[in-house]
Structure formats: structure tokens, C-alpha cells
Design a protein around this nucleic acid. Structure first.
Length: 686
RNA sequence: GGGCCCGUAGCUCAAGCGGAUAGAGCAUCGGAUUUCUAAUCCGAGGGUUGCAGGUUCGAUUCCUGCCGGGCCUACCA
């Protein structure tokens, strides 16, 4: 709603500027006033125009206000200060549209979106860093779906890499386990924890004697080769750990559609197809000398062509591949003819955009309780399967450390002549989760003096140092359970368990979303286990309080606003609102309750509730989910103030009571919707 | 050496394309309606936005330089 009105305002302003001054305004900045008293929108455009029109800003602002005319849905424009234009909407009109949950159909770009997230090495338990990735990714998926996009969720599985090989080495060379024994372990609960510890021991074992590393390369080679006992063991381990990852993520309500694996990229020869095209287009060059002699290399992203070769390009007919300075070379194919992971990634991304000319085999892998099927790549697949890949846009949720590799893949696509694909390739980059020194000490890590002075300490899978995802979830559930038990002894065991879980997930998902992406999260149990203030449970509690009003008052919130369908899975609102409610409360009277300065506080609540799709749009455009967490918190905060200030059920003026109930119903609906987009449920009671 | 990111209150973080008095939470201190209430609400203190310049009517935001920190820069993945 808010978004729609803003667009309409801009259109009118643009028309006016053209009419009055003959100006084509490319970009009209619309701000939100610092205080609700100033109106709903603020325009600094008079300042920008002052130079161009050679007039005082204030004078221009006055002309705009006088000349722009009436705009449907708007009350008035007014000049403030030295030239600000503050804009006021017609509150009653906005309110009635909000109650009906009317939203003009937004234009949805064509084509499918592919979001890749999680991508955890299947050799050990998921940890808090993986949680940040999965929660960011899953929330972004929900945002895209809320905006009407069709989305495929992929989780890339590196099942043939060194990390899996290490755990295989651990079982075979250190533990001396047989295949049958490993199978037995893999079937036990939390096999991923076993691997977590073993992985750390293997790293230790390598350090003790460097010759032990030979086991790794032999194992790695056998795995890549396939069709042997070692490869079979690697497969059974990686599949078992992968299933554990899916279970862990399922606890957070995170699901995937497809699990492409590196083994298939290898065995279905994706690379061969890509290699041919990369050679043909000159993206790859063969080095005849230097330290990379015998390798196929490409220019690393972010490195510039050297002066000499760039200058000679014109005369050389442009056909000769530029030589790349040694330090700017990225080895794609090693001198022993094997392909590095960036090469595989290039092939994989050509597949994503439907540019490779090959496809995976598919089989069903995991069925969620809601009957949703998650598919996995395989060599010979089922004949009937959904169509993955060949998408219009991709988002790769991968931490910032891989930005150079990501950019190299993008440059490869450009070099192949696929600029349109490269432009729709987004590296959804975020910073890592580390531990505060205090948290590290709690986990038994010996801190050096230098460590103690750091603001964070990086987790390390190799050292087995970090907080496992399931452990954190268990701790959160236990902490929530203590509170729920104390508050609601009358509830059954199962009910208290459910509520505790919902609160734990709310706390965790909110915690991972409240930080902006470039911020390193210095993890600390004290902050993560907090249920007060700027947290998920705070927002959940506000929604529960809204429900309490209706339950205790014996009202149905449905009667006051058009019900939300839960948000995340919603199709774009069709706007063909159901004005069916004979019992629905009339909205006409509300003008008197929403008008004037005395109603500013309640109006601010309504206005904030109106911003959800506007905020989601911002989040998508900037790939920054943190704005939505901020929005949820603001809405909850404003509601809590309202809740405290206006006791509804004892209100004696019936019209005013209806108005207050409508306010609560509206906020309840929007809060539930916003939280659903973040993957957070609202418990029945708290 | 080169590339990317960061530096804001005691702590952890916000601040849409440059805009109005730089905001929250935590912590500290002081308060709160017998109500739909306390996983809450109200109030107080707390800031030279790392430093120095520049651009601008206006800079936490853009530019340059410095200081401090992180990540990347392997024929590992």
C-alpha cells in the first residue's frame, strides 16, 4: 500500500516538473519524515532543483505544492523548513484499503528464480555459520515468493572434495573401521557429531606426520574416480551426513527442492561441455611457461589487463588472447589434467542458466512431512521429474570469503558472451559467524593473550571448534522451556514443548537476520539466548498479545480485517478484495479516530503495518533481509506501546472500541505475515 | 604487494539514492496502571560517527590520504 502510494506520488510530481519547468526528472527522491507529525512522505527535491532553476528552494517548494494538484489518496502537500515538501495521505482511505488487505497487483518479472543456499560440506555437523547461511537464504526465498516469484531452492553438495575424503581417511586409516561398521554408525542418530569429532582428529593426525597426507590424496583420487570401495564408503558417509543436515534444517522449517552434487557434475561430464566452450571463446588460455606451465588458466576477477597488452590490442586485430600476468592467473585445469572447483562451478552455473546443453539425472531423496519432495542429482534418474535449472535469475548465498571465486565465475560467463546471464547472477554475500572470546573460553578453548583482545575468534571445523547447530537449537529450546513451564503450568507437556520450540526458532532466526550482511556476527550464548528486547520472541509476544485481546474479549479478529493467509506462501495479493463481510465493521467512522494530531501515535501503527510489501521490496532489491527484521521489531514495539496505552476491552465508547479492535486485528495480521516471511511462527500463548 | 569489507554510546548493532534533533537493544539507575499487561511499558544518563583534508546549501553516508582490524590473493574445496 505504502509502496503503491509512493509510486503514484512520484508519477504526479514527474508530470508536474515536466509541465511547469520542462524537466525530465530521472530520479525523484522520496523520504520518510523523521516524525509522523510531518506526514507520510518527505520530498527534498526543491533543494536539488534550486541550482538548476536558479530559485530559492523554499520558492520552488511553494510552486510544487501549489501546482501539483490533487492526487487520489493524498490529503495535501505542505512546505516545511527551508524547502522540504511534506506529504500527507488521506488516512481514512489508506485505512480502508488496509483493512480489506487490498494491494494493487505488482508487476512480477518473468521467469524462475534459483536460490542456492546452505551448501554444507557433508562431512560433519552443521554449525552456527551454516545456520546464518541457511536462514538468510530461506528468508530470501520466502521474500521472493511473497513478491510473487517462482523459486527453486538448491543446496549444492560437494560430496567428492577433500573434506569428505578426510573423514573417510579417519574411518579407514585411523579408526580402521570396516564398511559394515561405518554403515552401522551412519544409521545411528547424530552421525554428523561422530564425523565432527573424527574430522578434527584427522586434521590433527595430518599435523603429526605430514606423510599421512598421502592417505588424503589417495582417497580423494579414488573418490573422484568412482566405482570402488572407497568411493562407496565416501558416498554412504556423505549421504548420511547430508540427511542429518536436512533434518537439522527441517527443525528450522527450511526445505530444499533439489540437491545437485559434485559427483554428478564430474561423472556426467559437465566439465567437458564447459571446457570446449571456454577454450573456443578464449576465456581459458594454455600456459606454456612459468609457474603455471601446462595449466589452463583464466584471468582472476578484479585484476586489470596490463598496460602493454591493453595498448596493443587494437593493432593485433583483437583476436590474440591477452597474456595474463602470472599473479593474475587463476588455474582452472591443473597440469595433471584435473579440474579445480572453480571450473566445476563455471560448468554448474552454465547449467543453471540453461547454457550447458546437459542435464542431471534426478531421483527423489527426501520427503518432508508436508509431502514436499526434495530431489537429488544422480547419473541415471527417474523418467518423471520436475525441471530444474534453465532459470532467469540466480542468487548464491555464499559467504564473503568466496567473492573472488564467485566473480571469476561471473567473468567466465561474460567471456562466453552471456552478459545477460552474468547480469542476473547475484552473489548474495554475507560475513561469517565467529565467536566472542568469552564464548570461546566457555567452550573450553585455550585463549592466547592476543585472542583475548580480539573482538571475535573464527570457528574452525578442522579444529572441531565451534557451536553445532543442533546443540544451539537444543539449548534455545531448553531455555524457552524453562520460561514456558513457569508461565503456563496448566498446559500439557506436548503443548509446552511445541511453544518452546516455536520460541526457540523465533529467537534463532531473528538473531541471524537482525544483523546486516557485512557485519561479522560475534556469537555469544548470552545474546543468542535472549528473549527480551530486539529479539524474535519480543515480536512473537506482541502478536500473541493481540490474539489475547480477541480471545479474552470473545471476538473473532476475522470480523475486523480481511484475514491473512499466512504470508510466505501467498500468491501476490490479487486486490479483488472480498468485501463480503456483512458482519465486517464499517470503516467510514474511522476517519474521526485517525484524524488529527491526537491520533498520530495510532496512525503511526497503521502506517507501519502498511509498509510490509514496501519493505520486502527493499529487501529483495538490496538483498538485505535485515530490514525486515527491523520492520517486525518496529511494528511489535509500536503495538506494545499501543497495547499499554489503550486498554481496549474496557473501552465504553462502542465505536472507539471497534476502532481499537480493528487496529489490533490489523497489526496482528501484519505481524503474523511478516514473521512468516522470516520463517517464524506465532505461538498460541506465551 | 594487489583486491574486497569494516571502524558510530560502556557492549552489540541501525541509520533506503547525501537530508530535518545520529537511533535501537543490552547493561546501569529511577519509575509503572488491581485492567486485553511484566518475554511488557515510561523516564534518565551515555556520541568530536577512527584521524586529517576535499566536494556540497547540507556528509555517519561520496572522494583523497593516513591509523587500526578482518577476509581473499594455493596446480585445496
Amino acid at each position: 500500500m505504502y509502496r503503491f502510494l509512493e509510486r503514484r506520488l512520484v508519477e504526479h510530481l514527474r508530470a508536474f516538473l515536466l509541465r511547469a519547468y520542462g524537466l525530465e526528472a530521472a530520479n525523484i527522491v522520496v523520504e520518510q519524515p523523521p516524525k509522523i507529525e510531518f506526514g507520510e512522505y518527505a520530498l527534498p527535491l526543491a533543494f536539488e532543483l534550486a541550482r538548476k532553476l536558479r530559485k530559492a528552494p523554499r520558492k520552488i517548494a511553494e510552486e510544487v505544492v501549489a501546482g501539483v494538484g490533487t492526487i487520489p489518496g493524498f490529503e495535501k502537500l505542505e512546505v516545511a523548513g527551508g524547502g522540504y515538501i511534506n506529504v500527507r495521505v488521506n488516512r481514512a482511505e489508506v485505512a480502508s484499503a488496509l483493512i480489506a488487505d487490498e494491494a494493487p497487483a505488482a508487476e512480477v518479472p518473468p521467469g524462475k528464480v534459483l536460490v542456492e543456499h546452505s551448501s554444507i560440506n557433508p562431512n560433519k555437523a552443521a554449525h552456527i555459520g551454516h545456520l546464518r547461511n541457511a536462514i538468510l537464504g530461506d528468508t530470501f526465498v520466502r521474500m521472493l515468493r511473497f513478491a510473487g516469484r517462482e523459486v527453486d531452492v538448491q543446496n549444492y553438495i560437494d560430496n567428492t572434495g577433500a573434506q569428505v575424503a578426510d573423514v573417510v581417511v579417519g574411518f579407514l586409516n585411523i579408526e580402521k573401521k570396516s564398511r559394515a561398521e561405518i554403515e552401522l554408525l551412519a544409521a545411528a542418530p547424530r552421525f554428523d557429531y561422530v564425523c565432527w569429532d573424527l574430522y578434527a582428529r584427522v586434521s590433527q593426525w595430518y599435523e603429526e606426520d605430514k606423510t599421512n597426507l598421502q592417505s588424503r590424496s589417495a582417497t580423494l583420487h579414488a573418490i573422484e574416480e568412482g566405482n570402488n570401495e572407497t568411493a562407496a564408503i565416501a558416498d554412504l558417509i556423505s549421504v548420511a551426513v547430508l540427511k542429518r543436515h536436512l533434518e537439522t534444517m527441517e527443525r528450522l522449517d527450511i526445505e530444499y527442492d533439489f540437491l545437485p552434487r559434485e559427483s554428478e557434475i564430474l561423472h556426467l561430464h559437465f566439465w567437458d561441455a564447459a571446457f570446449a566452450k571456454l577454450k573456443e571463446s578464449g576465456v581459458l588460455t594454455f600456459e606454456n611457461e612459468g609457474k603455471n606451465k601446462g595449466c589452463w588458466v583464466m584471468r582472476r576477477a578484479g585484476t586489470a589487463k596490463s598496460e602493454t597488452t591493453a595498448g596493443m590490442e587494437d593493432t593485433a586485430n583483437g583476436n590474440v588472447p591477452d597474456s595474463i600476468a602470472e599473479e593474475d592467473q587463476k588455474v582452472i585445469v591443473r597440469s595433471n589434467r584435473t579440474v579445480g572447483y572453480v571450473g566445476k562451478d563455471i560448468a554448474y552455473h552454465m547449467w543453471k542458466f540453461g547454457l550447458l546443453g546437459r542435464d542431471f539425472g534426478y531421483r527423489k531423496f527426501y520427503r518432508y512431512p508436508n509431502a514436499h519432495e526434495c530431489w537429488i542429482s544422480t547419473i541415471h534418474g527417474e523418467t518423471e521429474h520436475p525441471h530444474f535449472g534453465d532459470v532467469a535469475e540466480i542468487y548464491n548465498v555464499i559467504d564473503a570469503r568466496q567473492s573472488e571465486a564467485q566473480n571469476t565465475v561471473i567473468e567466465a560467463l561474460r567471456g562466453l558472451g552471456h552478459d545477460e546471464a552474468a547480469d542476473r547472477y547475484t552473489h548474495f554475500s554475507y560475513e561469517m559467524v565467529a565467536l566472542t572470546p568469552r564464548c570461546a573460553a566457555e567452550l573450553g578453548y585455550q585463549l592466547s593473550e592476543e585472542d583475548k583482545s580480539r573482538s571475535w575468534i573464527e570457528v574452525s571445523g578442522r579444529k572441531g571448534f565451534g557451536v553445532k547447530a543442533d546443540d544451539l537449537l537444543d539449548a534455545l529450546i531448553a531455555a524457552a522451556r524453562t520460561e514456558v513451564d513457569a508461565r503456563h503450568p496448566e498446559l500439557s507437556n506436548a503443548e509446552r514443548a511445541d511453544i518452546s520450540t516455536q520460541i526457540a526458532i523465533g529467537a534463532l532466526r531473528y538473531f541471524m537476520l537482525k544483523f546486516t550482511k557485512p557485519s561479522v556476527i560475534a556469537f555469544d550464548f548470552k545474546d543468542a539466548l535472549s528473549f527480551e528486547g530486539d529479539t524474535g520472541p519480543y515480536a512473537q509476544y506482541a502478536a500473541v498479545r493481540a490474539s489475547n485481546i480477541f480471545r479474552k474479549g470473545g471476538f473473532d479478529p476475522d470480523r475486523f480485517v480481511r484475514e491473512s493467509d499466512g504470508g510466505a506462501s501467498a500468491a501476490p495479493h490479487d486486490g479483488a478484495a472480498g468485501g463480503d463481510g456483512a458482519s465486517r465493521v464499517s470503516t467510514i467512522d474511522f476517519a474521526k479516530f485517525l484524524g488529527g494530531e491526537s491520533a498520530d501515535d495510532i496512525w503511526e501503527l497503521w502506517l507501519t503495518a502498511a509498509k510490509t510489501s514496501y519493505i520486502v521490496g527493499q529487501c529483495i532489491a538490496t538483498t538485505e533481509p535485515a530490514y525486515l527484521a527491523k520492520h517486525a521489531f518496529q511494528l511489535a514495539q509500536l503495538f506494545n506501546t499501543f497495547y499499554h496505552r489503550y486498554p481496549i476491552l474496557i473501552e465504553t465508547d462502542e465505536d472507539r472500541k471497534k476502532f481499537l479492535l480493528t487496529t489490533a486485528a490489523l497489526v496482528r495480521r501484519e505481524l503474523i505475515r511478516v514473521l512468516a516471511i522470516m520463517g517464524i511462527d506465532v505461538p498460541p500463548v506465551m
